[in-house]
Nucleic acid binder design. Structure first.
Lengths: 257, 257
DNA sequence: CGCTATTTGTGCGTATGTATC
DNA sequence: GGATACATACGCACAAATAGC
């Protein structure tokens, strides 16, 4: 039961040393003693301050990294990135496709394809550069062309990626994955907005639904790091044919063993 | 430039050893050589196989952990959790409160509180143990009691947490955070479902809206690890008073330094 | 039940490499 | 080049959790 003096002096608590140090540092960050942008003491100094080995110091700081509180760079130091602990949740599901429940059998069948300038759709594409060149596709999403369609979809892609619009008909793959495959551009950020509306006359006709029926409108903006928004998808789901659901789970990487 | 023979024989690549080992293990997992549920070789064996120190082995496996591919437990081993590298997206926003846009000014004002058994609400609480004891609160959510309410809310909490229902009136805090503060239980998982419906007569009256108007119904289940579902919240938002939006970003923590 | 073997977790010491200023 | 700070890598020992006898 006794510990050898070379390892650890007896303590009342069963907490690991690195956890004690990590908590102390976290409290210093939360309290503002180390504000965002500040540099934490060097490993060597922390070793002296807490009388621990460098291994233990690094293990403690690893915890701060996992919590997103600090980043480290050789030759620079440990920089405070945030002054509060984020409850980190990750979306369950491994791909955006899973996240957004686009099963393979929900193929998109094109009704109409056209080229437009951003002015025409400024309202729909809010936040995009005006005057930008886009290509637009409207289609119906559903199991097969005969049965009741599940959604009316409007997709806008940057003109540069226009080529994918020819690939999607019935492929059952989400547009962004086609762009990924063909142009190597994948989203670094996805913004989503969900509202309730009622179906207009045109929309109802295309969906074989009745005008005035409630519907879910899901608008998604796909962004990639340097180029910005390159795809906007607007889906209109008549109530009862679809429900959006997702699951968030506490980030397993944030606990780090 | 030359390395001492005790550290590392010269190699062409500048890649760290742990990275080489990590990649080899990752490929073995992706290829199915170590299927989901299997145990990876022990640290000792990996040390021998790759002729590396235990330190390096652990650093390599740390990468697999950060990618969510494996979990580890003392006395058991390293268990494969997934057979593909997830494109990890995290919700932007640091708290669930931010995630779900519950600003402080969207206080909940109670209309009615009651105790129920699970049978009464089995449909609403699907997936929960039947016969379980719940407490229910119905209220209106909005800026202040005078102006137009934003939503009609039904909240079910496990009977054990009944006490929080007295705290919420006008507090402006989400229920789960009250439970967290009072009972120390915080969600490890949140499930959310969004559908479009139309307002019924009762609902419309309480919301000062008109019957038949479209609305967004957002149902959230809060789960905590051992105890299961302990809170269910059903929010009904008349169209136009609210829109749900969220943002996903590629996980910065998945790269780990 | 206690005991043991196994496996990961924690902790220390040391040395050298690499990035930055 | 030199100084500094983190990154990588070797070694060792003991603790804690688990599974099986």
């Amino acid at each position: 039961m006794k510990r050898s003096p070379t390892t650890r002096p007896p303590t009342q608590t069963a907490r690991p040393r690195y956890a004690v140090v990590a908590q102390a540092l976290i409290e210093d960050i939360l309290s503002g003693r180390y504000p965002v942008g500040a540099t934490l003491p060097t490993e060597q100094n922390l070793c002296k301050q807490f009388d621990i080995s460098r291994h233990t110091t690094r293990e403690a700081i690893r915890r701060l990294q996992a919590l997103g509180l600090v980043t480290r760079r050789a030759g620079v130091g440990t920089i405070v990135q945030a002054d509060r602990i984020a409850q980190r949740y990750v979306q369950v599901g491994d791909t955006v496709s899973d996240l957004y429940q686009y099963a393979q059998d929900m193929a998109l069948n094109a009704l109409e394809v056209s080229d437009i300038e951003a002015d025409d759709a400024t309202a729909a594409l809010q936040g995009c550069a005006p005057g930008q060149a886009w290509a637009r596709l409207q289609g119906l999403r559903g199991m097969d062309p005969d049965s009741l369609p599940m959604a009316l979809t409007d997709v806008y892609v940057a003109r540069a990626f226009r080529g994918v619009l020819g690939d999607i008909d019935g492929s059952g793959l989400p547009i962004w994955s086609l762009i990924e495959a063909r142009y190597g551009v994948s989203p670094t950020e996805v913004r989503q907005q969900i509202t309730a509306t009622i179906l207009g006359r045109d929309e109802a006709a295309k969906l074989h639904a009745t005008q005035g029926e409630p519907a879910l409108r899901i608008t998604r903006h796909y962004l990639s790091d340097p180029i910005g928004t390159y795809e906007v998808a607007i889906n209109l789901y008549p109530a009862g044919r679809f429900s959006y659901s997702n699951t968030l789970r506490t980030d397993p990487a944030a606990t780090l063993s």
